[in-house]
């Protein structure tokens, strides 16, 4: 049986997640920021799948017929579902804003402060 340490996946996921965060922080284009958030969600997805497999492996050692780990993969499915819905609304908002100010620069979002 060929195995990979879970840590690799964790590190990968963390790295992706962090890159996503940095992207959110550094970019001014709202769309790209949004994309970075998607990146973060994907990092989580990877992690979940990896954990799913890890738990499955652990359970498999005890019970060949185990379905352990399924829930995480389904969770990932739901995340994707949600992400899709989110994108729909998000892009709608962005388009609406663009229609009004002809810009998607986040720094222009400063009418509301203090």
């Amino acid at each position: 049986m060929q195995v990979m340490p879970i840590n690799y996946y964790i590190f990968l996921s963390i790295a992706l997640f962090t890159i996503g965060i940095v992207g959110v922080l550094t970019r001014r284009n709202v769309i790209i920021i949004f994309m970075c958030i998607e990146l973060m969600l994907n990092a989580v997805n990877v992690l979940l799948v990896a954990f799913s497999k890890m738990h499955h492996l652990n359970a498999y050692a005890l019970d060949r017929a185990t379905t352990a780990g399924t829930e995480a993969q389904l969770f990932v499915f739901f995340i994707m579902v949600v992400a899709a819905a989110e994108v729909t609304v998000g892009l709608a908002i962005i388009v609406m804003l663009y229609r009004n100010i002809h810009s998607v620069d986040i720094n222009f979002l400063n009418r509301l402060k203090h």
Binding site: V30, M96, R111, L112
Partner: peptide
Amino acid sequence: LKSNEAALKYFL
């Protein structure tokens, strides 16, 4: 525009 901005901020 304030409403737009609020929506986008909230969303992001």
